[in-house]
C-alpha cells in the first residue's frame, strides 16, 4: 500500500532510479553498481562507472530554493515520542505570532508524520503549480509540508526503504515553493539514519543554523539523545541546546508535583553538562499539551498562562537569542 497521490512526480531519476531494485544501495554509495542487488539492474553500468558519485544533481536546485531561507533549524532526538513534533509545532506557532515573520515547517518523518494532525491540517492536500508544490498554510505566514498531505488516507502506511525516503526529502527541499522564509523548522523522525543523513547532506551547502535536541528525563531516553548529539558532532551541526520535555507532572487534584519519568541519572541537566551543550529549559508534563496536539490547536494560544506555555516561550526566546535574532 505504497500510496502517494498525483501530482507527486517520482524522485529524480539520477538520485534513485525509478526502476531501481529493492535493495538499491543508492547511486552515491560506494557500493553503487557493485552490490548484490545491482545484478541485473538496468542502471548497473552507469552506477559502476562512478559517474553518479559526483555531487547530487539536486544540490544546485536545493541551494537555489534555500537561498531565500534565513534560518534553518533541525528538531532532533534519538528517541521517539519525546515531543519533537509537538515542540516543532509550538515553535512554529510562536514564530508566526509575529506577522512580519514567515515560517515554514518541513516534516521529514516519512513513516510517522504527526505534524499535520498537531497543526490541525490533517485533511489538507498538496497542490502543485508551475513554481512547485505549494505548502499547506496554517495561517498566512506559516507553511507546512509533510508526506501526510500526500496519502489518500491517514491509515495508509508508507513502506519505503531509505533511497525512496531520500528522494522525497530532496523533493521537499527543491520542489516545494517555500518562498522567502525567516525560519524553516525541520521535524525529524527518531534515530540517526537515512532521513537525518539526507537532510544534512542536502542542506550542508546552504548551511544549517543549528539543532534543538529534545529529550525526556529518564536514562533510557538520554542514552539515545547522547547518540544524537554524537551524530551532530560527527556531521558538524551546531547544537543550539537541549530541551527536557515531560519533566515533572502536577496532579490536577492535589497540585503535588511528581516525576513520572524519573531523572535517575540527573536528567537533561547532567546530560547538558557532560556533553557541553546548553540546557534550553524544561517543560512540565501537562495532559492538555497532548490534548491540544490531538485536536490540532495551539497549546500556547489555548493556555497562555500555564507553566508549560511559559516554559515553551522562555525556551523559544532563548533559541532566538542564541541565533542572534
Amino acid at each position: 500500500m505504497i500510496a502517494v497521490q498525483h501530482p507527486v512526480v517520482p524522485p529524480n531519476p539520477r538520485t534513485v532510479p525509478i526502476d531501481a531494485p529493492e535493495h538499491c544501495p543508492g547511486t552515491e554509495s560506494e557500493l553503487a553498481g557493485k552490490a548484490d542487488a545491482c545484478a541485473g539492474c538496468a542502471n548497473q553500468e552507469i552506477c559502476a562507472s562512478g559517474q553518479t558519485k559526483g555531487p547530487d544533481p539536486a544540490l544546485p536546485f536545493v541551494r537555489e530554493r534555500m537561498s531565500g531561507v534565513k534560518r534553518k533549524i533541525l528538531i532532533l532526538s534519538g528517541k521517539g515520542g519525546v515531543g519533537k513534533s509537538t515542540f516543532t509545532a509550538q515553535l512554529g506557532w510562536a514564530f508566526s505570532a509575529d506577522d512580519r515573520l514567515q515560517t515554514g515547517i518541513m516534516d521529514v518523518d516519512i513513516c510517522g508524520p504527526s505534524i499535520p494532525t498537531i497543526l490541525g491540517i490533517a485533511s489538507e492536500q498538496v497542490h502543485s503549480s508551475s513554481s512547485g508544490w505549494s505548502p499547506v498554510y496554517v495561517q498566512d505566514n506559516l507553511g507546512v509540508m509533510s508526506v501526510g498531505f500526500m496519502l489518500p488516507s491517514s491509515r495508509d502506511a508508507v513502506m519505503w526503504r531509505g533511497p525512496k525516503k531520500n528522494g522525497l526529502i530532496s523533493q521537499f527541499l527543491k520542489d516545494v515553493d517555500w518562498g522567502d522564509l525567516d525560519y524553516l523548522l525541520v521535524d525529524t523522525p527518531p534515530g540517526t539514519s537515512d532521513e537525518h543523513l539526507s537532510i544534512v547532506t542536502y542542506l550542508k551547502e546552504s548551511g544549517i543554523d543549528g539543532a534543538v535536541v529534545i529529550t525526556t528525563p529518564q536514562e533510557v531516553a538520554l542514552q539515545d539523545v547522547r547518540r544524537e548529539i554524537n551524530f551532530c558532532q560527527k556531521v558538524g551541526i551546531r547544537v543550539l541546546g537541549v530541551v527536557e520535555n515531560m519533566s515533572g507532572f502536577v496532579c490536577p487534584s492535589c497540585k503535588t508535583e511528581s516525576q513520572i519519568f524519573k531523572p535517575s541519572t540527573g536528567g537533561a541537566k547532567r546530560l547538558a553538562e557532560e556533553m557541553v551543550v546548553e540546557l534550553l529549559g524544561t517543560v512540565p508534563l501537562d495532559p492538555r499539551i497532548g490534548k491540544s496536539a490531538d485536536y490540532g490547536v495551539s497549546f500556547l494560544d489555548e493556555y497562555p498562562d500555564s507553566p508549560a506555555s511559559i516554559a515553551y516561550l522562555d525556551i523559544i526566546d532563548r533559541i532566538k537569542r542564541i541565533l542572534g535574532d
Binding site: 554509495s29 557500493l31 542487488a37 539514519s193 537515512d194 537525518h196 543523513l197 547518540r227 554524537n230 560527527k234
Partner: peptide, 14 residues
C-alpha cells in the same frame, strides 16, 4: 562506547 551513534543508511541496517 555506549554513547557512539550508529549512523547507518538502509543497506547497512539490512
Amino acid at each position: 562506547k555506549k554513547d557512539d551513534s550508529v549512523v547507518w543508511r538502509g543497506p547497512k541496517k539490512n
